[in-house]
Design a binder for these strands. Structure first.
Lengths: 326, 326
DNA sequence: TATCATGGTGAAAACGATTTCAACGACAGG
DNA sequence: CCTGTCGTTGAAATCGTTTTCACCATGATA
């Protein structure tokens, strides 16, 4: 492995000079030229490990996600990766598989060393999370939840759900049911359910608490909950879901029970999934800029790391949403 | 930042002893105990950067993917992450956004330093790729393509496509069309089309070359190609696609032109997408163990890195497939 | 008793960069 | 001529580990 000293010797300078050449310090034109040639000749490439040890910066950003194989998360990740690549950073990806403790584990792991900053695609935020975030030695940005005292990029799930509920209340004749997710996920669980309920109520068609079920983000859980709902309460005529994925499951359940093609008029979701859009002609849902949230969060993080001027540092940013097919 | 020397002083030993304690070298029981306490007391955590510099190993695996927000890739990635986490490695993710040159770029970047090994989720393999893989200084495993002289974990797309074509030929009455992808992607482009054609031919219902179109992996491209097909050749009665995603687009096109509900009986795909399965009741498609391929590839890679015994090193592995809904 | 493994030990030399520091030549101003 | 400044330079210290090496007890073996 050719090292800096070799380059320096070949160019007839000290390694300090080579380092300065590489990092834009004082260097005369002719020496710069000689160094440049020596580098090309030897095919030298600097050891990021040595550099990291000396400078304390790795140009690595830790990204913690609850599950990589979900459309929303993988879109967010795409946005993050886009910005990181453009700005000379790399992504250290940690997949927690929906286990909150592994999230904390990774926060620890990342903090104690390799990464310069962290993007946390958040689901559940416990007090332990708050503490971990608070005491984090590197800058950190959250995506998907709005947490006091932390930099967050999020969507207003309450408002979106309210609007959706309000719009649906008028269009649905019979009873409306709701399949949510754990309320430990404040945004997707609590906010969406509360907002939806409030929207329905405001439109004079309140949600019957007996028609609320809990899913687990998966298509199958949506299917199961819907089947159960339909058998317990056959007069349910619309099933609103907290995610498009669960909505797809519910849709299948309705098709099975009531006949194919029926479901697509009787479910709603969140997330504006592309498959769902294409295959059903569009159920009522909420479009979020997932890619954008990844982009924005990462830019914020990198701005503070790179010391970019202007009001572009860590702060909390609420992104807009869009009701679809209502 | 508390360093090893501090721990050593507190425990009254040399830093060599602490290092040995941490790495399982010779150490007496009482010193081990003292060191353990000193570590707990100080909250010491070792600098992975210094360690990396000294040992030359980073416990990082570079993963190069063509596009993170696709179901197949994100499942593969999930499999990779699973194994890496379990075996004490971390994932450095690089998303090339389907640009072959960025793939090479990352191969370079990874090779020249931070990572101990590379998993390449491959699409197009050019000669340049072959050279880059050949001359790679760290072990590398490919997923999704079978390349001579490289360790590969792949599915037999030709065989699967043959079987699918053969099975469909008998079940479809009218004309069959095909929407493929670029043949630079040997597996998903060339193999699937050839296999499918061969399967049809073997069943006595050969594919009309005029009814072949090219998509670009996206739902919209499948939609566009299908619309075009249907308008140019209205007598087409079945559209086979090289991916489930494009099949979803084709399905929508058919629904629009021929009426809702018609499409689901008149398209096939590859990949057994969960949404498609739920929303259509199941079109003919091929199920691949994407997660498994990530797992297997990563285990192979890590086995050679960790020097695990047995015949578990780098080699080429063909995984099975399963025809669905035929 | 002399010799030899054997488990333990710390001083010191890497690993390969960056950065501090003192110093140098040239040149301008007084 | 002296002084100060400016652009430029290389020797050497530093980052925090791991690893080599020489060496020391201690108990077993010849």
């Amino acid at each position: 492995m050719v090292k800096m000293k070799d380059v320096a010797e070949l160019a007839g300078v000290s390694s300090a000079a080579v380092s300065r050449y590489l990092n834009g310090g004082y260097i005369s034109a002719d020496k710069a030229e000689r160094i440049k040639q020596a580098i090309e000749l030897t095919g030298y490439v600097r050891s990021s490990q040595a550099r990291a040890l000396r400078t304390g910066s790795t140009k690595l950003i830790g990204v913690i996600v609850p599950k990589i194989n979900s459309e929303s998360v993988s879109r967010i990740t795409a946005g993050i990766g886009q910005v990181l690549g453009r700005r000379g950073y790399q992504m250290l990806l940690a997949n927690t598989d929906n286990a909150a403790d592994r999230e904390l584990e990774y926060l620890d792991l990342f903090q104690n060393h390799p990464v310069d900053g962290i993007v946390l695609v958040a689901t559940m935020i416990t007090d332990e999370h708050r503490r971990a975030i608070e005491s984090c030695r590197v800058p950190i940005v959250l995506i998907g939840q709005n947490v006091e005292g932390a930099a967050c990029v999020y969507h207003d799930d309450y408002e979106a759900a309210f609007e959706l509920g309000h719009a649906l209340a008028g269009r649905v004749d019979g009873k409306i049911a709701y399949i949510g997710v754990t309320e430990e996920d404040r945004a997707a669980g609590y906010d969406r359910r509360c907002g939806f309920e409030a929207g329905l109520r405001a439109a004079g068609n309140p949600l019957d608490a007996a028609l609320i079920r809990l899913g687990s983000f998966t298509l199958d859980s949506g299917y199961g909950a819907a089947r159960e709902l339909l058998s317990v309460a056959p007069d349910v005529s619309f099933i609103a879901c907290a995610t498009d994925t669960m909505a797809a499951g519910a849709l299948r359940a309705i098709d099975e029970v009531r006949g194919v093609g029926e479901g697509m008029h009787r479910v709603s979701g969140f997330g504006d999934n592309a498959f769902l859009r294409a295959l059903t002609g569009g159920i009522p849902t909420v479009h979020y800029g997932y890619l954008t949230s990844g982009v924005e969060a990462t830019n914020m993080l990198l701005n503070t790391l790179d010391g970019v001027e202007g009001e572009s540092g860590l702060k909390t940013l609420k992104l807009g949403h869009q009701l679809m097919n209502v």
